[in-house]
Design a protein around this nucleic acid. Structure first.
Lengths: 220, 220
DNA sequence: CCGATTTGTCACTCATCGGTGAGTAACAAC
DNA sequence: GTTGTTACTCACCGATGAGTGACAAATCGG
C-alpha cells in the first residue's frame, strides 16, 4: 500500500557532490561503531544512548549497527565483552613495593586502587550508574560481566592471605565496594556526597583517609 | 488507536463516551497531579518520567501541569518540597528503648534505620538513582533538599554525644551513607551487589550485620 | 570481463516526545 | 437570562526516537 517499488527512482546516477573516498572495510566499520558507542556512553551516559546517536557519532548509517551487531542489545553485549578485562587493564598487579602481610593490608590497598581506577574511567562509571538505575536485559549483561571480573580479580589478588575468622568477608567487601562506587558516582554527578565535597584533590585525600580508616577498623 | 488526524470532529465538544462526573476543583487536581507524579517516579523511575506520562497517569491534560506547576521543573520542585520532611516521617525519633551511650551506639542505630527507611521508600530510591545518573537543575534541586534534610537530621539525632577525636566524621559518615545508598539501589535494581545476594530477609540480615561491624570498627 | 555478494546509503513508517494556541464547559455575579 | 472568570480539553506543531526495505556502489570469485 505504500511506495510502489517500480515507480520511483528518477535518474539513478544522480551526481553526488563530493563522494569522499570512503574505504569499504567491514572490520574497520565495526570497530568504529564499537568505539563510538563506548565513547558516547562514557560522555553522555545511558540517557541519550541510542541507535541514532551511535550511528551519528560513528559517522555511518544506523542500518550497519543492525547488520553487524543485531541492534543495540548486541552492541551493548560487545561492550560488556571488553569489560571483562577492565580490572586487569586498569589496576596494577604489583603491590607498589609494599609488603602486604595481612588481609587488612590487602584490602586497604585494593580499596584505594579500586577508587582510583573507577575515578578515571568514565565509561565504567556510567555503566555502574546504569546498573543502579535500570533493570533491563542489556544492563543485566553488563552488570554480570563486570561483577564477575571484579570477583575473580579480588580472588586472584587475595593470594594466600587468609581473611580474619568470624567476619563475613563477602558481605563486608560488598559494602566497601558499594561505598566506593557510590562515592565516585555522587562525585561525578554532583561534586559531593552526603555533604562531603568531592572536587579537589584535597577533598579526595580526606575521602581516601576516611576510607582507609574504615577498612582498618573492620579488618584490623 | 488514538486520534486519527483525518477524522473530522465536527464540533470541539466531542461527545465523551463516559460522562465521568469530574468535579472541577483546582486544589484536588493539583494534588492528583502531584500524587501521580510521585507514584510514576516511584514505579517507573526517572527514565519514563515526562509531562505526557504524568498527565496520562493523573487523568488530566498536560496543559494543566504547565498551568499549575509551570512544567516539569516546577512539578519536580514540588516533589522536592515534600522531601524535606522525609527523614522526620520515615525514621522514628526514639531510640527504641536503647541507651545510646556512645557515638558508636548512635551511628550503628542510625545506619540501620537509614537502611530500613531507604529500603521501603521506592520514591526516594529512584531519586537517589537519579542523583547519581544525571546532573540537571531538576536533580540538583532534589538532591539538595534531600541532603540538607539528611544533614539536619543527623545533627539533631546526635544530641550531646561527641564523636571521637581525630576522626573526620563528615567524611566517614558520608562513606557510610554512600555504602547504604548504593547497597539499597543495587539490590533494588538487580537483587545483588558485588556478588552479595540481596533478596531474602536472610540476605539483608547478613548485610546489616556486616554494616554494624563496619560501623563498630570505625567508631568503636 | 561478468555476475554475485558485500558494504554502505537513503527514504520512509510509525510512535512518542515537549510544547502551544485555541477552544469548550462549569460557575458565580449581575 | 448575559457576562466574565476559572477549570479544563483538544488538536496540532516540530523534533526525534527505533526500526525496515530498497537500492547504489565497491569488491570479489570465476
Amino acid at each position: 500500500m505504500l511506495n510502489d517499488p517500480m515507480v520511483l527512482t528518477p535518474i539513478a546516477g544522480a551526481p553526488r557532490a563530493e563522494p569522499e573516498k570512503r574505504v569499504r572495510d567491514r572490520g574497520a566499520t565495526e570497530k568504529a561503531i564499537l568505539k563510538a558507542a563506548k565513547a558516547l556512553l562514557a560522555e553522555e551516559g545511558f540517557q541519550n544512548f541510542g541507535i541514532n546517536a551511535v550511528a551519528r557519532r560513528a559517522g555511518c548509517d544506523k542500518q550497519l549497527i543492525y547488520r553487524y551487531y543485531g541492534g543495540l542489545n548486541g552492541l551493548v553485549e560487545a561492550i560488556g565483552a571488553d569489560l571483562g578485562t577492565w580490572v586487569k587493564d586498569k589496576i596494577p598487579e604489583d603491590t607498589g613495593g609494599m609488603f602486604l602481610l595481612t588481609y587488612g593490608d590487602l584490602m586497604e590497598r585494593l580499596s584505594l586502587l579500586f577508587l582510583e581506577a573507577l575515578r578515571d574511567d568514565p565509561l565504567v562509571r556510567r555503566i555502574v550508574a546504569w546498573e543502579v538505575s535500570e533493570n533491563t536485559e542489556q544492563v543485566r549483561r553488563l552488570s554480570e560481566a563486570r561483577s564477575k571480573a571484579l570477583a575473580t580479580w579480588l580472588e586472584r589478588m587475595r593470594g594466600s592471605l587468609t581473611p580474619p575468622k568470624g567476619v563475613d568477608v563477602v558481605a563486608v567487601n560488598a559494602i566497601l565496594i558499594a561505598a566506593i562506587q557510590h562515592l565516585v558516582l555522587s562525585a561525578s554527578a554532583g561534586g559531593q556526597c552526603a555533604g562531603l565535597a568531592l572536587k579537589t584533590a584535597k577533598d579526595w585525600d580526606k575521602a581516601a583517609t576516611a576510607l582507609k580508616r574504615i577498612v582498618r577498623g573492620v579488618y584490623g
